[in-house]
Design a protein around this nucleic acid. Structure first.
Lengths: 346, 346
DNA sequence: CGGTTACATGAAAACGGTTACACATAATCG
DNA sequence: CGATTATGTGTAACCGTTTTCATGTAACCG
């Protein structure tokens, strides 16, 4: 049944298989009557051309590989990746491509990875990575496979990449807290080897310095983006002699962990501790008190990265670009701004 | 550079391209000296055979499609899917297959999905689904593509599928609570159209009935597996005149939401409310108080489903099987069993 | 109405591998 | 030592598409 080939369809429809192929590919030069008849035969017999044969003849697969950051456990756990994926999948669908994520691809030996990429299974790759030590950009470049990068990756400026302005985002977040009068503002950083951790911390420092506040090393913790690490970091901060009155947390997931730690101690947000996160995950906008945070246009980043990749695939003269998107401060309840306003201003 | 073909390699190595092919596929009948020489040329020139051509000649791709439940937003958000994926990816890697997840595949129109599956891009599919109304099993069967199912799906008993005994799991969880003396035990169900929601509720009912406790409809809420829905359900329960002293929650993610709601009210676990979850997510084992829960062997389920699929692909006489794996009660802090023991027994 | 152009179609050559088969050559044996 | 069997290698057919090119036919034109 499923073994029907284009020749069978041609024979049944009484045309040559070249004609069937033309019908399948919407080639203009085929008479409407013939076209319709062929389609009918195709549908009636549930024929679908075999991908492998097409790929071979076309020398492309219309499949785009999607690669997330290394650690498999974090991969599917942080909802932000779901949002990237959503943007990527959306554009792919719309442009007639397939976005494919290979499970366990990042756990493959390098040798295997090279072979996979060189096998031309993917026309191109969207890579999501901030890790400065990630060997993947290097591998991708060496295999000469077209790719775009979401996130920053230093050295290579010829690359098509997209990112947000992390420094400015963090600066806005922390400035918001200083403007509300906070003096002891903690910071929970991401892993030191990721560029955006670095940048967000830089924004934190900049905002404090601008208003003449000191950088207190005791108030700076390092997490790994997980809820758990936010939780443990906050517990650590609460054990200080002088705990912070506010926390800037480098991502929303860790902020959720912070809330957990605070509630456990019977402290309330924002009355006891004010919190600002980063990411604006759809999920966290629901938690009470709702989280003040820095919105990254995550879905759009995925979309643009994919769009650029496809253009790169389809036009020969495509110019590599580096796009930096703006972030946005979303004020909700966890920072105490509303409360503040009510008491002091209104 | 990347345009090297097997013929180029053959020419350079001074052999026929049939020989190169044999070397690539570890065919025994090639002299060791020749084999080594060919490998050297291959490596030196970084040659990798083109997937499309291989797939066409072999009539298979060694790619296994992975399909998660419908709703895209839940897809990557619930860590349990990461665990399934881990098991699937692991076995695939080990058996020389590639596990591929197509982003947005579940949002495709049915027509497209049919075409994708019939295009023979995937040798087979591992489907994760509990949804009784999911059209996918039907589609998969119609396309005659081999597949295995993780989760239950009523009607079709000829299918290769794997699941846990949800009724028994829930029964163990709730019996544990009744044994600890709880009389008002709430239940937070999953979406009604999923088989496992139904089954876990059935286990809940069975456990209560066994000790002669009534089923109080007020104590039964319906969530959608998300943390948020656990949170809102618990808020609802706390507004009752007589709130429950314990909650059986149909999955861990919702249980996390419950904790959130309780802390917000200043209540403590397990002193004020005891909780038992379901899944045993690696993530939740860290939260304090640590969660008593029912462990599903999730990674193993993914592995077995994949193993069975591959056997089905490689052996013609493979017999469809339905495997039900046992669950396990993991006692931690949230149910109060330890506390109970300390006070009353020790 | 004959000659040119436009259009629709079929035959055949790619695309880059795998593998059945034929055929040397080397090993084995009576 | 010649016949027989193993063993290694090359030739060519095949996998199922797309696409170039040639060709036959219809439309157009003066």
């Amino acid at each position: 049944m499923s073994k029907l080939t284009i020749k069978d369809i041609a024979r049944i429809a009484g045309v040559s298989y070249a004609t069937v192929s033309r019908v399948l590919n919407n080639h203009p030069s085929v008479r409407p009557a013939v076209r319709e008849h062929v389609w009918q035969v195709i549908n009636e017999h549930r024929y679908t051309p075999q991908a492998a044969a097409r790929n071979l003849a076309n020398q492309r697969t219309r499949i785009i590989g999607v690669m997330f950051p290394r650690n498999a456990d974090r991969l599917l756990t942080n909802p932000i990746f779901a949002s990237f994926g959503q943007g990527i999948g959306q554009v792919c669908a719309q442009r007639g491509y397939l976005a494919m994520l290979s499970l366990g691809m990042r756990d493959m030996e390098e040798e295997m990875l090279f072979n996979l990429l060189r096998s031309r299974l993917f026309d191109g790759v969207v890579l999501i990575s901030n890790d400065a030590h990630d060997p993947l950009p290097h591998i991708l470049k060496e295999t000469q496979i077209p790719y775009t990068l979401i996130g920053h990756n230093s050295e290579d400026e010829e690359l098509v990449s997209i990112d947000v302005d992390n420094i400015e985002g963090a600066y806005k977040a922390v400035s918001h807290l200083t403007a509300l009068g906070h003096q002891r503002i903690a910071c929970i950083k991401g892993p030191p080897w990721e560029h955006c951790s670095q940048d967000r911390y830089e924004g934190y420092v900049k905002a404090l310095q601008e208003v003449g506040l000191p950088i207190d090393a005791n108030l700076v913790c390092t997490g790994d983006w997980t809820e758990r690490s936010g939780y443990t970091s906050m517990r650590h901060l609460l054990r200080l002699e002088q705990p912070p009155s506010a926390v800037f947390c480098s991502n929303d997931l860790m902020a959720a962990g912070i809330l957990h730690a605070l509630y456990e101690r019977g402290l309330t947000v924002p009355a006891d501790v004010a919190i600002v996160g980063f990411d604006d995950l759809p999920q966290t906008s629901i938690i009470i008190p709702s989280l003040t945070t820095i919105r990254q246009p995550v879905v759009e980043m995925g979309m643009q990265a994919t769009e650029m990749l496809i253009q790169q695939l389809e036009q020969h003269d495509y110019q590599p670009t580096r796009i930096i998107l703006p972030t946005m401060l979303i004020v909700r309840q966890s920072c105490g701004a509303f409360h503040h306003l009510k008491d002091d201003v209104l």
